[in-house]
Computed example of a mutant assay.
Amino acid sequence: MSYDECYIRSVIRAVPDWPEPGVMFRDIAPLFQDPKALHCVIDAFSQRYIDADISHIAALDARGFLLGSILSYKLNLPLILIRKKGKLPGDTLTEEYQLEYGSACVEVHTDACKEGDKVLLIDDLIATGGSLLAASTLLRKLGAEITEAAAIIDLPFLHGSSKIQEAGIPVHTLIAY
């Protein structure tokens, strides 16, 4: 394990029994209070994707927005917002998915991307994979190709990264619990 991985891991806060009993929530909020940790995260993603064949970054509401906006700026790429249902004005597509503790819907603007665009999906963590798979379904309906799904954290015991890979999408994460 590299120094950066160890440092990022040391900054992430574990919150037991949140949002419900039995769930160990991995809170990335401390990463944004620690400039060194945030630099480690953004530098790791920037270095991976600086020469990648991608045309857009799609970030998931809400913590994915924090990473996606910085990465979009650093790589000089357009940012697609994948929002929770009812948060985007105008014409949207909607997709429902299962969470580890319920269900939800995400939406994207119908003009967010087009046929032939190559999109990197980014979020804070991969749990069951539902939100990233729903986002990929939306983007594929618009004609885009999903080049990879990226996150800071993977929770492999919930099998989300496996489900994403089974859907034909490569996965990259910085750390796993």
Rank of each mutant, 00 (worst) to 15 (best):
R83C: 04
K84N: 10
K85H: 11
K87V: 02
K87W: 00
P89Q: 06
G90C: 13
L93M: 13
T94I: 14
T94F: 01
T94M: 10
E95C: 14
E96M: 13
Y97K: 13
Y97P: 09
Y101Q: 14
G102W: 03
G102H: 11
S103D: 05
C105E: 15
C105H: 13
C105I: 01
V106S: 00
E107Q: 15
E107R: 08
E107T: 12
D111I: 09
D111S: 12
A112L: 06
C113A: 09
C113I: 05
C113R: 09
K114S: 14
K114L: 09
E115F: 10
G116P: 14
G116K: 14
G116H: 14
D117L: 06
V119W: 00
V119C: 12
L120F: 04
L120P: 01
L120V: 02
L121S: 03
D123S: 06
D124H: 03
L125G: 14
L125W: 13
L125P: 11
I126G: 07
T128S: 11
G129N: 14
G130S: 06
S131M: 04
L132W: 08
L133F: 06
A134Y: 07
A135N: 05
S136W: 04
S136F: 04
S136M: 14
T137Q: 11
L138F: 10
L139S: 03
R140Y: 03
R140P: 00
G143M: 12
G143A: 09
E145G: 10
E145L: 12
I146V: 08
